[in-house]
Simulated scan of single mutants.
Amino acid sequence: MGVINMASVTLYLVRHGQTYFNIYNKLQGWSNSPLTDKGLADAKSAGERLANVSFAAAYCSDTTRAQQTAATILTENNVSNVKQPISSPFFREQFYGSFEGENMNYVWDQVGRPHGLNGFKEIEEKYSIAKAKDFMKEADPFHDAESNDEYWHRIDRGFDLIRENDDLSDGDNVLVISHGNTLLSLMERYGGGKYDLSVRPENGSVTRLALDDQKITVLGYNEK
């Protein structure tokens, strides 16, 4: 497969609908919990808002919450021929290792404590979301949580998967179902300091990126 020689395609990144782990404030990276009734409504609302956007392709992680959200959005769409998303582990949320399924506040306190910090917000403010990934890998007793380098190596392969789609043309729109921490990480990396990283993107919100064979540019974030 060859990389597309393209000026740009527009990625519509939608955060999956609300899940039970979201309600219970549990870390949900590679682990999974079903969409709630509100989560299904989040996906339907996003689909209605994007109903007249013509998508040339759709991608999501291989988690149920992402697949359900993608299917709902594509069902609501009036103008696309795409009926099924391409699922790949490249689009998964950050892997939290042995902290998967634990209370978020408890875990981030454990991660921050060796550095004299309490919680994710203090880590992000003093260091960065990138550093929070490295701190979590250090704190994980099994050291299975993804480091920042491991995380981006995987996520970048997801963007390359889109670039390698020979059916895409310049100017096409692509649907991508994404995850909360991934969207924050993208804003830290590509947002140029314009976005408040202390506020998590809403379930069902839309973030738009311009993707070409060289770079990624943020067009809009957490739009509802």
Rank of each mutant, 00 (worst) to 15 (best):
G2I: 09
V3N: 10
A7P: 14
S8Y: 08
V9Y: 01
T10V: 15
L11F: 03
V14M: 07
V14F: 06
R15E: 09
I23F: 04
Y24T: 05
Y24V: 00
G29F: 04
W30R: 08
N32H: 06
P34V: 10
L35S: 09
K38L: 13
L40P: 01
D42C: 06
D42Y: 00
K44E: 14
S45H: 07
E48A: 14
L50W: 00
F55G: 11
D62E: 11
T63Y: 09
T63N: 01
R65M: 06
A66F: 04
A66R: 02
Q68C: 11
Q68G: 01
Q68E: 15
T69F: 10
I73P: 04
I73M: 04
L74A: 11
L74C: 07
S80D: 07
S80A: 05
S80P: 14
N81T: 14
V82L: 08
P89M: 09
F90T: 08
R92E: 14
E93M: 05
E93C: 11
Q94M: 13
Q94L: 14
F99D: 08
E100Q: 06
N103T: 09
N103C: 06
M104D: 15
N105K: 10
Y106R: 12
D109V: 02
Q110S: 04
V111T: 05
G112Q: 04
R113K: 01
H115N: 13
G116S: 09
K121Q: 12
K121C: 12
E125F: 12
E125K: 15
Y127M: 02
Y127W: 05
Y127H: 12
S128M: 07
K131H: 10
D134W: 00
F135K: 01
M136W: 01
E138Y: 01
E138P: 02
F142K: 14
F142R: 04
H143S: 13
S147F: 05
E150A: 09
W152M: 05
H153K: 08
D156A: 09
R157D: 08
G158R: 03
E164F: 06
N165D: 15
N165R: 00
L168K: 04
L168E: 09
S169T: 11
D170T: 01
D172K: 01
V176A: 03
N181R: 04
N181H: 05
T182L: 15
L184M: 12
Y190W: 01
Y190T: 03
G193F: 13
K194I: 12
S198M: 10
E202D: 13
N203P: 12
S205W: 01
V206H: 00
L211G: 05
D212I: 05
Q214R: 00
K215Q: 15
I216N: 02
T217E: 15
Y221N: 06
K224Q: 12
